[in-house]
Design a protein around this nucleic acid. Structure first.
Lengths: 142, 142
DNA sequence: CGGCATCCGAGTAGATACTG
DNA sequence: CAGTATCTACTCGGATGCCG
């Protein structure tokens, strides 16, 4: 485990203070963090974006195959949202049969980088989390 | 907007390949990324962790006041989960009235750092997202 | 004070069938 | 092929009341 010094903690606290200083007053009914995170950090959206980082251009059914378990409805919803928020670009080719391609925008790529950071962190520590869960569930009785 | 070169995109793709190479075969019914992210990346948990980075030690009602709009039920759920997964430590002082304190573990702090990265990114770009939303909703008719 | 139990309503997900 | 429509099932969040 990467050690964290008290000094670093203080720095972090300062950053936080700057970030949401005013939110302290609980005028944070509109909170951009909550808002934005909510939209692009659900399990499906993350996977979609990660796959689009892997395969630069994907079609609807291609994504559906990769993002295992997602339904048509949810996939098209997510894609629409992600497009609306500017993460990805949708290109339609009016051929027969129709062809639609999805790819990340520059903004999407910038988010992808953050996401990869996070997933690297997750994969590094997921074992630790799983262990922690077991420890608590088997629970030392007292 | 921070520019992203094709070269960087290739690097990112390689990382992804390493990260979930096998997931490609869609044996990813258990996907640690999905799993872990789902638990600590919901809007409430994020705010709880951010606040615990700001106020090192918090009590139940203190958190409740800060995390505006959260209900008792949801708060205690989140706290329990976050504790189970090892993000935070819960200390009970059997006084009267009882006192319970929450604070981040080292693991929690390590996650906090990632979270701050993300929120900084979000605050940098949230305007851009809002604009993108407007652009799409007012929608150039054709 | 902290927080669990219960109930209820709303939104969301999933399965399936259908269309341009 | 790329979705939409529809229906159902279920989970989630909020409100309330109770208890150690």
């Amino acid at each position: 485990m990467e050690t964290i010094t008290d000094n670093q903690k203080v720095k972090v606290a300062k950053k936080l203070k700057k970030m949401f200083g005013h939110m302290d007053r609980s005028e944070m009914e509109y909170c951009p963090i909550r808002d934005v995170m909510a939209l692009a950090s659900d399990k499906w959206s993350i996977l979609i974006i990660l796959y689009l980082g892997y395969y630069p251009v994907m079609r609807f059914n291609h994504i559906k195959k990769r993002v295992y378990g997602i339904s048509n409805k949810v996939l098209s919803e997510r894609l629409k949202h992600l497009e609306t928020d500017g993460y990805l670009k949708r290109t339609m080719y009016p051929e027969v049969p129709i062809r639609v391609e999805y790819e990340l925008t520059d903004f999407g790529h910038s988010y992808l980088k953050k996401l990869i950071d996070l997933t690297e962190w997750v994969t590094d520590y997921s074992d630790l989390i799983i262990e922690s869960r077991k420890a608590k569930s088997q629970g030392v009785p007292k």
